[in-house]
Amino acid sequence: MYGAAAHAPSAPKTLVVCAPGYPADTAAAQPTMNAFAKLAAEAAGWRAESLRALYDQTAEGGLQRLAAPDAVFALVTLPFFLQNEAGLRLAARLQAVQESGAAETWSLAVRRGRVASPAALDGWEITGGAGYAPEFVRGPVLGGWGALPTSARVTFTANVLSALRRAAAGEPVAVVLDGPQAKALETLPFGPDLEIIARSDPMPGTLLCAVGGRLPPKQADEFVRGLERLHTRPGSAEILKTMRLLRFEAVDRQALDAARRSFAAARAPAGAAP
């Protein structure tokens, strides 16, 4: 049984875009969201005004917006997805191909020569834009490297540059970086003082999800098919570029399942079977 009666074909539908730790805020992003919603609706064969899009740069704000019954789709980062997949009944339908690629590889940066193993992070702060989902950091990001000490605190910061400065200055801080950040590390004046000590497996970066089965499957499929060919439509390049996207494509299910398993293992109480 899907959604409320409110989701008749003509009912207003909302796409919630949520990327904690990334630039812009709701008001600043709205012109871009309006243009994207119009483009996406038209690609689905819907009336342009039948879809609206909203951006929220905080996890709390994104959750609040997704709780509203008109929220039928979500474009969210992988940590947000894993954290809320069950609670919001998110169904991953597509992955966004960003300018840096569809797959994201996460890294951990520390002051050069200070950390040789996960155990050395005893009492440290591990911070970054993905830190709002500590299980994501302990699992998909660093699980392959080893288990973090329970005394290590995972925190969120949108100000990764400041965290890197603290790490370079010798504070007990390790910084979780996304792909573009890790790539740009050497461009920083204090980059030589830092080193990457762990890298995750590649995993999806941003996912387009149906929310709570609120939309009838036929409409959801129309929308997904429209997004898959969105990049071929006139006028789409500038809007996608503004969102730092190239196109949408099918989800890498294998990589997503691996991230899901690792996340679940990190979330499980100590001693529980993975």
């Binding site: 630039p23 949108a158 573009p180 461009t187």
Partner: peptide, 13 residues
């Protein structure tokens, strides 16, 4: 307010 490193010149410090 600008997008932060490495996307833009944003640097709150």
């Amino acid at each position: 307010r600008a997008p932060g490193w490495p996307t833009g010149p944003g640097d709150p410090d």
